[in-house]
Computed example of a mutant assay.
Amino acid sequence: MSLKTILVHLANDVEHRTRLKVALKLARQHDAKVFALFIPTPIGMPAGITGRGASAMFLSEASRNAREVADNLEKEFHEACERDGIENAWLVIEGDHVELMSEHAHTADIIIAAQPIIEHLEDHFRTRLPEELVMQSGLPVLVIPRGFDPEIQIGKKVVLAWKGTREAVRAIRDSMSILASAEKVLVLTVGADAGDALSKLEVMEHLRRHGVNGEARNLAEIPDSVGKAILDFAETQSCDLIVLGAYGHTRWRQILLGGVTHEVLADSKIPLLMSH
C-alpha cells in the first residue's frame, strides 16, 4: 500500500513536536500529504481530580491551555509544509481521541501516534490510544517511542516480525511501500514451527517480487518472552523500525496475561508499525 495521506495525532503532551516532525519527514520520503489533527481535550483525568465541579474546571483549563499550544504549533506546521512543498491540512477539534482519529482515518493511509505511558497498574486498563486505533481505525499505526530523535530516518533497516497469521499478512500489505524503500528488511521468525518456516519462504518470494531487499532470520529457541526477543534482536541489528501484526489473541487477554504486542508496544525504544 502506498502512503499518500499521513494522519498524525497531536495533543498537549511533551512529544507532539516529535510526532509532527516524523510525519513531515515521512511525507517528504513518500510525497504524501500530512493531516495534523490536534485534539485539546485531555485523554484522561488525573487521579487526584475528583468531583464533578473539579473535573469540569480541570477539563476547561486543560483545553484552553492546549488550544494555546495548538495555535503556536499550527504556525510552525504550515511554515514547514510551505518550505518543503508538502500538501497539508490542520484541524483542531474537541472530543474523544479514539473516535475523532478513527473518523478522520477513513481517507488516510497511516496513523502516527505516541507510545503509551504505563507507570501504574491502572494504566493497563485505561484507554491506550495506539491500541484502540489499531483495533478500530482500520489503518496501520506508527507508534513513536518516548524520547525518540525525529532526525533519525525511519525505515532504512526494518525488522519484520513474521508468523503465519492474518495480522502478520496485513502488516506486510500495510507497510509494503516502506519495506520496498528500505535498504534492508530482516524477516524474523521465532521458534522452529514448520508451518511458519514454509510460509516464510513464500513471504520472502512475495517481498522479492515487490522489490524488497529481504533477508530471513530465525531465533530457533523460543525464549520466555517473544516480545523481548524481538526488541533485543531489533536493537542488536540497529534496526530503526519494527513491523508487527498486532493482537493475534484478544487484546484483553494480552493485557491480563501478557503477549507479544503488549510487550513490544510498552517497551520498544524503536518506532513500531502495527496492523490488525
Results as ranks from 00 to 15, higher is better:
Leu10Phe: 03
Leu10Arg: 00
His16Pro: 04
His16Ile: 03
Arg17Met: 09
Leu20Met: 06
Leu20Ile: 03
Ala23Tyr: 04
Ala23Arg: 01
Lys25Trp: 12
Leu26Gly: 04
Gln29Ala: 14
His30Ile: 04
Asp31Leu: 12
Asp31Thr: 15
Lys33Asn: 11
Val34Ser: 07
Phe35Lys: 12
Phe38Gln: 03
Ile39Gly: 07
Ile39Lys: 07
Pro40His: 12
Thr41Met: 03
Thr41Glu: 02
Ile43Trp: 00
Met45Val: 15
Met45Leu: 15
Thr50Ile: 10
Arg52Asp: 10
Ala54Cys: 10
Ser55Ala: 12
Ser60Cys: 06
Ser63Cys: 12
Asn65Tyr: 15
Asn65Trp: 15
Ala66Gln: 07
Val69Pro: 05
Val69Cys: 11
Asp71Ile: 09
Asn72Arg: 12
Leu73Phe: 08
Phe77Asn: 00
His78Trp: 15
Glu79Ser: 14
Ala80Ser: 15
Ala80Pro: 02
Arg83Gly: 02
Glu87Asn: 13
Asn88Arg: 09
Val92His: 07
Glu94Met: 01
Glu94Gln: 05
Gly95Leu: 11
Asp96Ala: 07
Asp96Lys: 05
His97Gly: 00
Glu99Thr: 15
Ser102Cys: 15
His104Cys: 03
His104Gln: 07
Ala108Pro: 10
Asp109Lys: 09
Asp109Asn: 14
Ile110Arg: 08
Ile112Trp: 15
Ile117Cys: 00
